Deep mutational scan, measured.
Amino acid sequence: EEKRQVKQVAKEKLLEQSPNSKVQVRRVQKQGNTIRVELELRTNGKKENYTVEVERQGNTWTVKRITRT
């Protein structure tokens, strides 16, 4: 359940930055209360990979860091 929520948060964050792209989740890793989500962003056939680190704060998820990989 929490992985599902985190995927959603990570996707939304990337789509905010580039709204007309397609996002696909590649991998989800958990480390303590930080969850790392690896995503693939496609814009006009151009692929970019991103890693989004999401942290739990109380009962909400906040995006800590977005890295292009």
Rank of each mutant, 00 (worst) to 15 (best):
T62Y: 15
N20H: 09
R68M: 12
E16H: 05
L14G: 02
G58K: 06
E12N: 10
K64W: 04
L41W: 02
K13Q: 05
V9I: 14
E16A: 10
S18H: 15
Q31P: 01
K3H: 14
E40P: 00
T60S: 14
K22D: 10
V23N: 00
V52W: 01
G32T: 03
T34E: 04
T69F: 07
N33C: 05
V6Q: 03
K64D: 02
G58R: 04
G32I: 03
Q24Y: 15
G45Y: 08
V6C: 05
V9W: 03
K64E: 03
N49E: 09
Q29E: 12
I66V: 12
Q29M: 14
V25T: 03
G32Y: 05
R68D: 03
K11H: 03
Q29S: 14
Q17D: 06
K11F: 06
K13C: 08
R68T: 04
T69E: 11
R65Q: 11
R65C: 06
N33R: 10
Q24G: 04
R42Y: 15
E1P: 05
Q29I: 14
E38M: 15
V52G: 00
R26W: 06
T60C: 05
S18Y: 15
V63E: 00
I35C: 06
G32S: 04
V25M: 03
I66Y: 03
T43I: 10
K22L: 13
E55P: 00
N59E: 12
Q5I: 12
V37M: 03
N33Y: 07
V23Y: 01
V6H: 02
N59R: 06
N33G: 08
L41I: 08
W61S: 01
V23I: 12
E16S: 08
R27C: 06
E38S: 11
Q24R: 15
V37Q: 00
I35D: 00
Q24F: 15
K7N: 06
R26F: 09
V28Y: 15
N33K: 10
V28K: 01
Q29K: 09
T60W: 14
V52S: 00
S21Y: 03
Q8S: 07
V28F: 12
G58W: 04
N44A: 10
W61Y: 13
N59W: 07
R4E: 14
Q31N: 11
T51V: 14
V52I: 09
L15K: 06
V28Q: 02
R65V: 07
T43Y: 11
R68C: 05
N49A: 09
W61L: 08
K47W: 10
N44W: 09
S21F: 03
Q31L: 14
N20V: 03
L41K: 03
W61R: 00
V6W: 07
E38C: 08
K11C: 09
S21G: 13
R68I: 09
Q57I: 14
P19W: 02
L15R: 05
N49C: 09
T67C: 08
R26Q: 07
R4I: 04
K22A: 09
L41C: 06
T60K: 13
V28I: 13
K7F: 13
N49L: 15
K47V: 13
R56V: 05
V54Y: 04
L14P: 01
E55N: 04
T34G: 07
V52R: 00
L15P: 01
Q5P: 03
R65T: 13
K30H: 13
K22P: 02
G45S: 09
G58F: 07
I35V: 11
Q5V: 10
L15C: 04
Q5K: 11
E16I: 04
R56M: 08
E38D: 12
L15V: 04
Q24V: 14
S18I: 12
W61K: 00
V6E: 02
R4N: 09
K7M: 15
L14D: 01
T60N: 13
V63M: 01
P19T: 03
V23W: 03
Q31F: 14
R65F: 08
V25S: 01
T34V: 13
K3W: 15
R68V: 07
T69A: 09
R4A: 11
R4P: 02
R26E: 03
G45P: 01
N59I: 07
R26L: 15
K47C: 08
E40L: 12
N44G: 10
G32P: 02
I66N: 00
L14W: 02
E40T: 13
R42D: 14
Q57R: 10
T34S: 08
R56G: 05
S18E: 08
V23T: 02
V63Y: 01
E55G: 05
V52L: 07
P19F: 03
V63W: 02
V37C: 03
G32V: 03
R56T: 03
K11W: 05
K64C: 08
V54F: 13
L39S: 01
T69Q: 12
R27S: 11
L39G: 02
V54N: 00
G32R: 04
N33T: 11
K46H: 12
R42K: 08
R36P: 00
E48I: 08
E40R: 07
R27H: 09
K30A: 14
K13A: 15
N59S: 08
L41D: 01
T67R: 09
Q31H: 14
T69L: 12
E53C: 05
K30S: 15
V54A: 02
N33Q: 09
E48C: 06
V63A: 04
V37P: 00
E40G: 03
E12Y: 03
Y50H: 02
W61E: 00
Q57P: 02
V9L: 14
V23K: 01
E12P: 01
V25C: 04
K64L: 15
Q29N: 11
E2V: 08
Y50Q: 00
R4V: 06
R27K: 08
L14E: 01
Q24S: 14
E1M: 06
V28S: 02
V28R: 01
T34W: 09
T69I: 12
E2K: 03
G32A: 05
Q17P: 01
R36A: 08
S18P: 01
R36C: 07
T62I: 14
